[in-house]
């Protein structure tokens, strides 16, 4: 078991380092930090620009492999280099990680739990009104990209704030209001007001995906022999479904979780950017515009780690739910 885990972690480490290196090389080739200086007035002399870029390890006159070696050496020591403005990448990302983490976790929990619940209910009453309604809604939701959904949410919330509530119930920008003096409870409410729309924007898609998948998995096991055995024992339909069918149908859904995680990260990126949350996703988009190679590479590495961690977590969860794979 230990040997197996070690091999697995090693292969993860290889994947992460290759992915991050690839991201760095791509970013270093495609992005052009030198252009940042072009628009400055007064235009700095080329020698100064060169010196600054070299200090940041961003000088395109240095051979690519040499820049890569410098970067990789730093990363191995836990140093992701400097941003284009000269600030350490580590500091910036450390602050932003918490923001993204909060958003993703809340979205994930809401999305998967509600999705599984909705899917299971829909399957139990197949063709009932609930099934039809949720099927229709999930089709609709799956057709709306996050960028549209988020904007629609903002439009609707703005309208509702003005016309329904008459005050700001939904806050559409940032994580919290600055300069609040309402004490702990007030802060909490303020954070919730900010959290609500981004969470909806992130988890509605997940709910749709998970509910479709859970519904189909449920329907697959509804006809299974073991559910028939449970019924033949004298269990009522409801008990046979919840105790035997739902429990078993959860297993494939858990493995599905790993597949959706990458998409979730992308969704979080859009959500952050549109709702003005200062998380990793927003920074990624900003840093591409600002030709910030080191930040881009660092965020890619974190994303790779997150995807693999999710896949590992889903395997652990799979093993916890299914005695057959535990053995």
């Amino acid at each position: 078991m230990a040997g197996f885990l070690a091999r697995r972690l090693l292969s993860y480490a290889v994947l992460v380092s290759v992915a991050a290196s690839l991201a760095y090389l791509l970013a270093a080739t495609a992005l052009d930090p030198r252009s940042n200086y072009a628009d400055r007035t007064p235009k700095p002399p080329p020698a100064v620009v060169d010196a600054q870029l070299t200090a940041l390890n961003l000088n395109d006159k240095t051979p690519l492999l040499q820049r890569y070696a410098t970067w990789a050496g730093g990363v191995l020591h836990g140093d992701f280099g400097k941003t284009v403005t000269g600030a350490p990448v580590n500091e910036d990302l450390k602050r932003r990680m918490g923001v993204t983490f909060r958003l993703v976790i809340v979205g994930l929990i809401c999305g998967s739990l509600l999705g599984v619940l909705v899917g299971a209910l829909a399957a139990v009453r197949q063709y009932g009104w609930f099934d039809r309604l949720t099927t229709g809604l999930s089709f609709l939701v799956l057709a709306v990209p996050v960028v549209v959904l988020a904007n629609v949410l903002i439009l609707v919330a703005t309208w509702a704030n003005e016309n329904v509530f008459g005050r700001y119930v939904f806050l559409v920008s940032g994580e919290y209001s600055d300069g609040l003096t309402t004490g702990f409870l007030g802060h909490l409410v303020d954070r919730l007001q900010h959290l609500i729309l981004p969470t909806i924007s992130l988890s509605v898609g997940l709910i749709a995906v998970f509910s479709r998948y859970q519904r189909n998995m449920m329907l697959d096991v509804l006809d299974a022999d073991f559910v028939r055995t449970a019924r033949a024992k004298g269990l009522s339909r409801r008990r046979a479904l919840t105790r035997h069918a739902l429990r078993t149908a959860l297993i494939p859904v858990v493995t599905y979780f790993a597949f959706t995680f990458g998409a979730l990260l992308t969704g979080a990126t859009f959500t952050e950017k549109i709702f003005g949350w200062h998380g990793l996703g927003e920074q990624l988009i900003n840093s591409i515009f600002s030709n910030d190679v080191n930040t881009v590479a660092a965020i890619s590495l974190l994303a790779a780690v997150a995807v693999l961690a999710a896949s590992f977590a889903s395997d652990l969860l799979h093993a916890a739910l299914d005695p057959r794979v535990r053995a």
């Binding site: 991201a23 970013a27 990126t269 994303a303 790779a304 995807v307």
Partner: peptide, 15 residues
């Protein structure tokens, strides 16, 4: 490897 690198990220870098 391609799964680990989110598509959006690479496409954005290459934009």
């Amino acid at each position: 490897l391609l799964l680990v690198l989110p598509a959006f990220l690479v496409l954005a870098i290459l934009s």
